[in-house]
Structures are given as C-alpha cells and as structure tokens.
Amino acid sequence: MGQEVLDEVTGYLLKRVHAALRAEMEAVLRPLGLTVAQYACLEVLDRADAVTSAQLAREAFISRQSMTVLLSGMESRGWVEVVRGKGRARPYRITATGRAALDPGRAAVTDVEGRMVGALDSGQRRDLHELLGQCLHGLTVSGS
C-alpha cells in the first residue's frame, strides 16, 4: 500500500498529523525545559482549581505510574503543589513558578498550532473543530 493510498485512510492521516504535531511541540518546548507531558499537565492545572494525579494522567494521555514520576519531578521544580484534600485523594495545583514555566510554553505551542491550521480560514477552523468533535463523540459514545 503506497503513501498516497494510506493518506486516504482517515485514521492513518490523523495519526500522521498527531505525530507531526507532537514532534513540533517537543521541538519548541525542549529549549524551554518542558516536555509535552509536563506542558499538558501545567495546561490542565492552570484551567482547574485542583486535579488528582489520576485525572491528570487521563488528560495528558499517560499512565498513572508515569504521572506519579512526572508529578514528583514537577513538584521538586516547584511547578506544582499538593492541595489538602479529603480522604486519600491528593489533588495538585499549579504554582506561580509553574505558571511562569507554562507561559512561554503556551506561546510556543500556540505558534505551532497556528502553523498547523494556518492555511485554513476561520470558518474552516470552526468546521475542523466541529468535525473532530463529532468523530470523538462517535468513538466515545456510540462506540463504547
């Protein structure tokens, strides 16, 4: 099966876009001292009051075990802190130091995403978001 034929397979094309996006994100985040997983965690924490490691693992698409290691490193860098919670849950929140690390990462990732959709007009961007949302819905709701 040639490349041209594979590019007609939606799932394969989505995987290629994902791989290219991730590679570009890694390239712009690495000089800032961030990994894609750290960036994802900081983004989630910046948009929520407190999030457990299990929730962060789901949001960042990594295993719970990897998240434990990741959070430990982020905590030692002063990027995150544990919030006193009820029961056994240990919610985390972003610190001011974490936000300072996130801000240049966010700008770099926004630039990468801008290049990815740069050839699309605003209507096409809205359509892309809507269509991808419908694809996700089709797999997570009716496909489960």
Results as ranks from 00 to 15, higher is better:
E26R: 03
E26G: 11
V28P: 01
V28S: 07
V28L: 08
V28W: 00
V28F: 10
L29M: 06
L29S: 03
P31L: 01
L32E: 07
L32G: 00
G33I: 05
G33T: 07
L34S: 00
A37G: 08
A37V: 02
A37F: 08
Q38E: 10
Q38M: 11
Q38Y: 00
Y39E: 00
C41M: 11
C41G: 03
L42M: 01
E43I: 03
V44P: 01
V44Y: 04
L45V: 14
L45C: 09
D46V: 09
R47D: 03
R47Y: 06
A48G: 11
A48S: 15
A48I: 11
D49A: 02
V51I: 04
V51G: 00
T52C: 10
T52Y: 10
S53A: 15
S53N: 07
A54M: 09
A54R: 08
E59W: 13
E59C: 11
A60I: 06
A60M: 07
A60P: 03
F61Y: 13
I62S: 05
R64S: 15
R64Q: 12
R64N: 14
S66R: 14
M67V: 09
L70W: 03
L70Q: 07
L71H: 03
L71K: 12
S72I: 01
S72E: 13
G73I: 09
G73C: 10
M74I: 08
E75S: 15
E75N: 10
S76K: 13
S76T: 14
R77K: 15
W79Q: 06
V80W: 07
E81C: 03
V82E: 15
V82F: 12
R84V: 13
R84D: 14
G85H: 00
K86C: 14
K86V: 06
R88M: 12
R88I: 09
P91K: 04
P91Y: 01
Y92L: 12
R93N: 08
R93I: 07
I94M: 02
I94P: 06
T95A: 06
T95M: 04
A96V: 10
A96P: 02
T97D: 15
T97C: 13
G98I: 02
R99G: 05
A100S: 14
A101C: 08
A101F: 02
L102R: 01
P104M: 03
R106T: 04
V112Q: 00
V112D: 02
E113V: 12
G114N: 05
G114L: 10
V117Y: 11
V117L: 13
G118E: 06
G118Y: 04
G118N: 07
A119E: 14
L120C: 03
L120E: 01
D121P: 09
D121R: 14
S122H: 08
S122D: 04
G123S: 15
G123I: 08
R125S: 04
R125D: 07
D127Y: 10
L128V: 13
L128I: 02
L128W: 12
H129V: 15
E130S: 09
E130Y: 12
E130V: 12
L131G: 14
G133W: 01
G133R: 02
Q134P: 04
C135Q: 08
C135T: 06
L136N: 00
L136E: 08
G138V: 03
L139D: 00
L139E: 12
T140C: 05
T140Q: 00
G143P: 05
S144P: 13
S144E: 15
S144D: 14
